[in-house]
Design a protein around this nucleic acid. Sequence first.
DNA 1: TCAGGTTTGGTACCTGGTACTAATCTCCCA
DNA 2: TGGGAGATTAGTACCAGGTACCAAACCTGA
Lengths: 192, 192
Amino acid sequence: MIYVSQTKSDRQGSLVRHLEDNPFLTDDDLAQVLGVSIQTVRLDRAELDIPEMRSRITKMARESYQELRAIAGSEIVGELVDLVVGQRGMSMLEVTEDMTLQKTRVLNGQYLFAQANTLAVGLIDSNVTLTGTARVSYKRPVLEGEKVVARAIITAKKGNKYMVRVSSQVKDELVFTGKFLVFDLSEEVKQL
Amino acid sequence: MIYVSQTKSDRQGSLVRHLEDNPFLTDDDLAQVLGVSIQTVRLDRAELDIPEMRSRITKMARESYQELRAIAGSEIVGELVDLVVGQRGMSMLEVTEDMTLQKTRVLNGQYLFAQANTLAVGLIDSNVTLTGTARVSYKRPVLEGEKVVARAIITAKKGNKYMVRVSSQVKDELVFTGKFLVFDLSEEVKQL
DNA sequence: TCAGGTTTGGTACCTGGTACTAATCTCCCA
DNA sequence: TGGGAGATTAGTACCAGGTACCAAACCTGA
């Protein structure tokens, strides 16, 4: 045997790595980059319990279909359950696995910030609002499966500046508070 | 004709709505919910320029594959370009369209927060860190295409509490500053 | 040299389609 | 009353990217 070929486990390791940084590879693609036949790739996938490309992609799409809407791509984190524009609002966020830090199952703080920020901005009756400053405080870690209810009220208004207070709870426990200074930029931004 | 059937355009409208809230429907599924044959569904899709399910899903997956990594799903926002654990760090974030508010092309503030927060937490030499409080200030809106460089330094340490200062710039302009109080919870969380 | 794992080739079959042709249904209008 | 046009359905051939299975060929070490 010439040195061209690797051991089976080398190849399977390589296969996993290839799929990790590109889950869109078909068996045919993999067969070419690994220099083996399609059948071998299929056997390897079977041994490693790796599903076919379509399943991998469908799974990703299904997950992202919910989650992307939850934070990236969209501006909204949490589900609005009550909103009186210009006065108060309430939003609910259910903590799913993908929002947590992998090691600890603790909700990544960015989500609490984003939920509160979303709500604060949503309260303002304008189509262009930006956060100026924020003071936030994390009271206790939030765990997977918990439901975070954020409540916001406008506490002050000066010109186009609004002070919004947000407090987030899990059941009756306070987990997060924040003060947001939000600007209504409907006028300024028109000039951009 | 009996009233059971709708007009063609009614049906096509219905098809679009069904796909909007569930892009995973196959032609067969659609045929059943709409009460027509598969061929009709295919004709409708062709007229409406709607691609087949696999394309729709693959597109979603491809998009989310990048974006999910950018903020949700992962804990990391921005690309680390320099990091001395326990001292200072620097991270770069290039603003792409999906991070901006749709109406104004202005970067959603959550990303600046998340980038800074990520960096602040990454600075701590521990595998379980949580943000306690944060005071952030948005200095000017950041636009699509700009590159945000965040720099962080640890300014103080008391027991398991760290004060981290982050300032983010686009070129030489300050766009964001933040003070983060970060906790090292390697001990506490073990008990969960 | 030969048994055993590894690799490859080939076939039948599946889903979710494309692309195309042909038949049928339905309605309206002269 | 019959004809024509659009809408709908049926059916066929073909494709990608697989599953599931079987048989042959290939190494490789004892």
